[in-house]
Design a protein around this nucleic acid. Structure first.
Lengths: 248, 248
DNA sequence: GGTTTACGTTAACTCAGGTTATGTCGGCGC
DNA sequence: GCGCCGACATAACCTGAGTTAACGTAAACC
């Protein structure tokens, strides 16, 4: 509860109240926070997989590099997200992770997850809820990639970021968000070419659904943008309470 | 150990040896096996989410229905797979699930998962490994959908099924598999039109990479097909041992 | 045994988005 | 101020896959 709480503890508390024992257990498992720079790689594909990270500050993304040089960005991580759950059952990393901006991360050793399983049902439930949530985010991204037009893809992704940021960082009065992704990164998220991302941005801008100023995006009418992207926020419905119910 | 073991117990044992206590815990949680018909729906989007199923016999798939009528198939489940982990942290189903063939399923109440967390670290680890594996499968499908040509998509999906079937049902001498999906379903898996699935099948057939006879597929040279689909089986690397390491 | 129905095939045409190439703008070192 | 560099914009052209529609085929039903 004090401000000596680590970033891991803070994040887990965001999901569910923790007992002192839970807090100590989490604290004991983590190594000291690590400062990282924009562009730094947390790991690359095929690296040995032996820990998780929590992202305390800054943005990151995970990606797959294809044989033909294309890169697919799989997930964008915001402060508070846990990174690396995907590879729990694997010895090797299957995806790389890089920082988008300078930030702070906390290491969380893989092998000792069992300590948590043994000692705290609450923490176990939270971890399970996090894994569930990530699978749901990935599912939505998959649908977005396979079945929607460029216009819908972009509108949908921006709405997702808008809502996720609202939950962690609060909402701006002017309905604006800061999205520190280059158009090349957006293309790699959305499965488009950078050129077409630019075209699509211009189209949305002309329609008045979206205005850009460098990395700041203004959404004059979020509901209209959501509509343009077939965005249905149910998949972001906070996962805390369902997990709580199971615990309670 | 006896043939009185339920299908859930069988499946979990496939991941990791279970103590008698673990077996009893699993057995106590499940309801009786349920016979289901091809086309039966296990649930639909927006249904309340309160249990998992294990698939004992038959194939199933999960899907999302889009506003414009398109359907995206997210995952194909084979006998032994656990269905519904995705919605652990949600109150509502976000995807539907239907049977592809007649089969048998076992219900596994959602709310009581906590009993497992409290009583068995082994079972908890297995469940976590299953969730990790599903996220990895989904990741690969996402890459397949967003970054590969129709030819690569089809080749890749068939290779995935070939390898997954090899693990559960063993390998045929003639390198053939039974794939009970209509071309319409394949289209909905791969984000293609049924027409183009047909064209692509014909092209692979002419190249000698694949021969079809109704639902039976013959792969004269699996390595060549894998190559055509940029298929790298690392993402199917059996997840049991990594989880075991954590337990041990 | 003939009709129905579901599933697959083939061909002609269309179009969203990729590709390539060139242009613009803001920041930065000198 | 000048030139460089990275990020974005715009335009012309190309292509893979969607769409539509007509036709085959095979199990299924009376």
């Amino acid at each position: 509860m004090s401000n000596r709480d680590s970033c891991i503890v803070k994040h887990f508390r965001h999901y569910h109240p923790l007992s002192d024992g839970d807090r100590q257990l989490l604290g004991a498992l983590e190594k000291s926070p690590l400062e990282v720079k924009a562009g730094d790689s947390l790991w690359e594909e095929r690296d040995p997989a032996q820990d998780f990270f929590t992202l305390s500050q800054g943005w990151a993304f995970s990606y797959r590099q294809l044989e033909d040089g294309a890169r697919q960005i799989l997930e964008v991580y915001l402060p508070g997200d846990v990174i690396g759950l995907r590879e729990y059952a694997f010895h090797q990393r299957l995806t790389g992770v890089q920082m988008i901006e300078d930030g702070t991360i906390c290491r969380f050793p893989h092998a000792r997850l069992t300590d948590i399983f043994q000692q705290s049902t609450t923490l176990t439930s939270i971890l399970f809820a996090m894994a569930s949530r990530q699978q749901v985010l990935l599912t939505e991204r998959l649908v977005n990639l396979s079945r929607r037009s460029a216009r819908q893809k972009l509108a949908h992704f921006i709405m997702e970021m808008y809502e996720r940021l609202a939950k962690t960082a609060g909402r701006q009065e002017d309905h604006s968000i800061r999205l520190p992704l280059s158009q090349e990164m957006l293309a790699d998220v959305l499965g488009l070419s950078p050129v077409h991302v630019s075209r699509t941005f211009s189209a949305l801008d002309e329609e008045g659904l979206l205005h850009r100023n460098r990395h700041r995006l203004l959404l004059p009418d979020p509901a209209a943008l959501a509509d343009a992207g077939q965005f249905d926020e149910r998949y972001l419905a906070d996962s805390v309470f369902a997990a709580n119910d199971a615990v309670g």
